[in-house]
């Protein structure tokens, strides 16, 4: 009698999307970092008015928001990887991952509120 062969449920490949998006978000953040560095070195904001003016333009606001969104996704993959490597009990790992997601969503709203305040 031949036993039914059931394949192990591995290889859904959702990991590949995360892997790829972690690299894409890294590129977005690297470009923003270099751009912001040039801005800060070119014309260093020395007063509150300068500092406020830097983040007043729609381009810088949108670029910063892109950076924050890329950062949040990137951080989620990174923290998930760290938890998967070091936190073995499933319950604790899921609780930590849940806490990270809640924190990141809070940061997203906070960043938008800071950039578009008043």
């Amino acid at each position: 009698m031949v036993k039914a062969y059931t394949k192990m449920p591995v290889g859904a490949h959702y990991g590949t999307t995360g892997w790829l998006l972690q690299r894409l978000t890294a590129v977005i953040m690297a470009v923003y970092t270099l751009g912001m560095l040039v801005c800060l070195l070119w014309d260093a904001p020395a007063t509150y008015t300068d500092w406020k003016a830097l983040f007043a333009g729609p381009f810088v606001r949108v670029a910063t928001m892109f950076f924050v969104m890329a950062l949040l996704y990137h951080a989620w993959i990174g923290m998930r990887d760290i938890f998967m490597d070091y936190v073995k009990p499933t319950g604790i790992r899921l609780a930590l991952q849940f806490a990270v997601v809640v924190a990141l969503l809070f940061y997203l709203i906070w960043a938008a509120a800071i950039l578009w305040a008043r």
């Binding site: 500092w51 951080a75 990174g78 760290i82 800071i114």
Partner: peptide, 19 residues
């Protein structure tokens, strides 16, 4: 790990306070 905590919340708080 350091960038996730504490740098990220500190940076957001600094932005919130200075702007």
């Amino acid at each position: 790990l350091l960038l996730f905590f504490p740098v990220l919340p500190l940076l957001l708080y600094a932005m919130y306070a200075t702007l």
